[in-house]
Design a protein around this nucleic acid. Structure first.
Lengths: 141, 141
DNA sequence: ATTCTTGCAAACGGTTTGCACATAC
DNA sequence: GTATGTGCAAACCGTTTGCAAGAAT
């Protein structure tokens, strides 16, 4: 399913901007920022505004057509633990739990990262924390 | 080595603020933000300013006494790939490479995350990208 | 006494929002 | 024709910075 169908299927108007922004993102492998995309498209679409790029990216993400590499606008969170460990992040309330699990500390070096020198890694689990999972369960009944 | 020794060892003055901020962070398991810490300490240290909390957290991080859960200050980066994959992030130039490796897709569910319902995960490798690793190597010679 | 830190307020940078005009359907 | 998107500028929010006053050594 291409983007035109995906948008039509949801009754979302297909505009030149949306198409251009999506195509641009699809073509680039550098995980561009909103501003990168804006700068790349500006010459061909002189009236394009940065706000539109942001709004469009948000729309596409909600539709599941694109994804975010790193959550924006989040505030920095700190941790007194400096030893190697991993995190479970609740998608509902933002709670972050620490995970200590030696099996996660010894991951295979990734294939296909041609020439990348790894100095460390961390695993992020997404999902619902105990409290939020419980709340959801209770609402069902 | 406690924080007082760690700071003294580096000739960094030990202030009430630094001590209070570090102790507060050590006590809390919720990975607080700078503002969380600020609010928690304000009643006992009425003259404390948010800027000091930020500066102190930065200092402690540089010394390796604390760590950041999520990088702040970064702009959102987008990806047209929505299938499961992982990332290699260059600590020098910020470049992000995609990694596809089925061995990373099937991680053991973490132990000790009591009640956390996992819906997905991703692995972040840190290190130097091909270009930056090469540049470093060349500088050595 | 000297050096480094603190606190304040202003600046900053990325992102969001309100609103009038334009466009898709 | 109606609903929705776009573009602009202003607002926003977390974070940083410049600087005068204060504290640690």
């Amino acid at each position: 399913m291409n983007i035109e169908e995906a948008l039509r299927a949801r009754g979302i108007p297909l505009t030149h901007q949306r198409l251009a922004i999506y195509e641009r993102l699809k073509k680039s492998k550098e995980h561009p920022s909103a501003e990168d995309i804006y700068r790349a498209l500006k010459p061909r679409y002189p009236s394009l505004s940065l706000a539109t790029v942001y709004k469009t990216l948000q729309t596409l993400e909600k539709l599941g057509l694109i994804s975010l590499v790193n959550r924006p606008h989040a505030q920095a969170r700190y941790d007194a633990i400096t030893e190697r460990h991993h995190h479970a992040i609740c998608e509902r309330c933002g709670r972050i739990d620490d995970l200590f699990d030696p099996r996660l500390d010894e991951l295979p070096l990734p294939k296909g990262a041609g020439g990348f020198v790894v100095t460390g890694h961390s695993v992020h689990f997404r999902g619902l924390c105990k409290g939020c999972a419980g709340a959801k369960e209770r609402r069902k009944r």
